[in-house]
Design a binder for these strands. Structure first.
Lengths: 142, 142
DNA sequence: TATTGTTATACTCTATAACTATA
DNA sequence: TATAGTTATAGAGTATAACAATA
């Protein structure tokens, strides 16, 4: 079991490094990509909403949004009904970047799993589901 | 396939968060634990060797070792034949911490996989191996 | 000359606390 | 009063570059 856990951890490390390198090439180092991904999933969002979704402080979001504004991925638009709030919104460039992330994410999944037989893939997915459920249990009762 | 990749990524995130929280409780926040783990695997090591193993700059290792010396996990011992180098070496406390990490790592693997039937576990491990091999291929030819 | 580790400096990401404008 | 976001400040982790001691 220890060997299997070690392999899961190594898979996590390698995926992480690979994605980080890829994102850096796109001009979206580190956490900025998470923010782009979140806006892609949610649409234009207040900074509060983003802070909660990413479990960061509002201050951290301010810094990330500043960086993404500067690099031209998003703009701060006025909230239509609450003048305290801003809606972080994709520019054309930001929207294109997000859609490109999504496409390449799917393409990457295909490359990663395409070699597996249908049975192996199915069994892997099944085991993964059980492990994930078990981990969630462990975290709740931690 | 996209759903399976998403689950792998979520497993990575959850494992990461869980381990980070656990390590912080032991007084080994963030990267210091990686360094302790590496010294545990390698035995007393020069900072150069640690820099290469963790793929960090020598300067980063200096900072991590400083922190571990200050918190009493390691000492810098003179290298027996090379007076430029130091051997980063566990104190009693550091050695105990490393062995405790190892024990809990194994215990965690048991908790995570114990519910799976033998067949499910075997199939999961097998799929994991293939995915890991495939990912290594992709990284080489990136 | 090359290598080991350090000092000096800077950047990113994160946090807490105090503040402004609005609700 | 409470909420959205900012300014001010601090700490961890990382990097590059220049340097001292040693090989």
């Amino acid at each position: 079991m220890r060997e299997t856990l070690d392999r899961v951890l190594q898979l996590a490390v390698l995926l992480n490094e690979d994605m980080a390198r890829d994102l850096e090439r796109r001009g979206l180092p580190g956490s900025r990509a998470h923010l782009v991904w979140e806006i892609h999933k949610r649409g234009p969002s207040t900074q509060q909403a983003l802070a909660q979704a990413l479990r960061l402080t509002p201050r951290a979001i301010t810094g990330l949004v500043d960086a993404l504004v500067e690099s031209g991925f998003v703009t701060r638009e006025p909230h239509p009904t609450d003048r305290r709030a801003t809606l972080v919104t994709f520019t054309k460039r930001g929207g294109m970047a997000a859609r490109s992330l999504e496409r390449d994410h799917i393409e990457f999944a295909r490359k990663l799993f395409d070699d597996l037989t249908e049975t192996t893939f199915h069994n892997f997915t099944r085991g993964l589901d059980e492990v994930l459920a078990r981990l969630r249990d462990l975290l709740v009762s931690n």
